[in-house]
C-alpha cells in the first residue's frame, strides 16, 4: 500500500507554513508594540512547526514531530525570557514601544523619528557630501543608566 500522504499534500502544508512564517516576519518588522512583536515571533515558530510535521509525515518518520517538541520547548524558553524583558523595559520607560529604545543602536546610526517618517518627510540626502563607504557596525552600546536604579522608581 502506498502512503496516502502524497507530495501534493506535503506542498499544501508547506504553503500554509510559509504563509504563517512570512506573516509573523511582517508583524515582527512592522509592529511597534513589544507584546505584538512577541506574538509574531511565536507565529513564525508555528509556521516552521507545521512544515516540520508535514515533512516528517511525508517521510514516514517521527523526526518532524520530535523537532516540533523541541520547538515548543524553545518557544517556552523564549516566552519566559521575552516576557521578563518586557517587564524590565516597561519599568524603565513606562512604554511598550520599541522605538523608544533607539538609543541602544550602534553609534553612528541616527535615531529615526517614526512619526516624521510616517508623514512622508524626505530626509535630506547628502549627495554632494564627502564620499563614504559602508563600515561594519560595532556591537550595540549600553544604554545610559538612570541615576536612581529603575527598581526604586516603580509605582
Amino acid at each position: 500500500m502506498t502512503d496516502p500522504f502524497s507530495i501534493e499534500l506535503l506542498t499544501n502544508y508547506l504553503l500554509v507554513g510559509a504563509a504563517l512564517f512570512a506573516l509573523g516576519m511582517l508583524g515582527f518588522i512592522a509592529r511597534r508594540n513589544l507584546i505584538v512583536m512577541f506574538l509574531s515571533a511565536e507565529m513564525m515558530l508555528q509556521g516552521v512547526a507545521l512544515s516540520l510535521v508535514a515533512f516528517g509525515r511525508f517521510h514516514g518518520n517521527w523526526s518532524g514531530q520530535i523537532f516540533t517538541i523541541v520547538i515548543l520547548t524553545i518557544a517556552a524558553c523564549e516566552a519566559s525570557i521575552a516576557l521578563a524583558l518586557i517587564v524590565v523595559l516597561y519599568n524603565r520607560r513606562s512604554s511598550l514601544d520599541v522605538t523608544v529604545w533607539q538609543d541602544v543602536r550602534e553609534p553612528g546610526i541616527e535615531p529615526v523619528d517614526v512619526a516624521a517618517e510616517a508623514r512622508g518627510a524626505v530626509l535630506a540626502t547628502d549627495a554632494d557630501g564627502t564620499e563614504t563607504y559602508p563600515t561594519l557596525t560595532p556591537a550595540g552600546v549600553e544604554p545610559a543608566h538612570p541615576i536612581r536604579p529603575w527598581t526604586e522608581r516603580r509605582r
Binding site: I29, A30, R31, R32, N33, V36, S95, L96, D97, V98, T99, V114, A115, E117, A118
Partner: peptide
C-alpha cells in the same frame, strides 16, 4: 496608544 496605531515603515 500611538505606537499601536502606527507601524515602523
Amino acid at each position: 496608544a500611538a505606537y499601536d496605531r502606527s507601524s515602523r515603515s
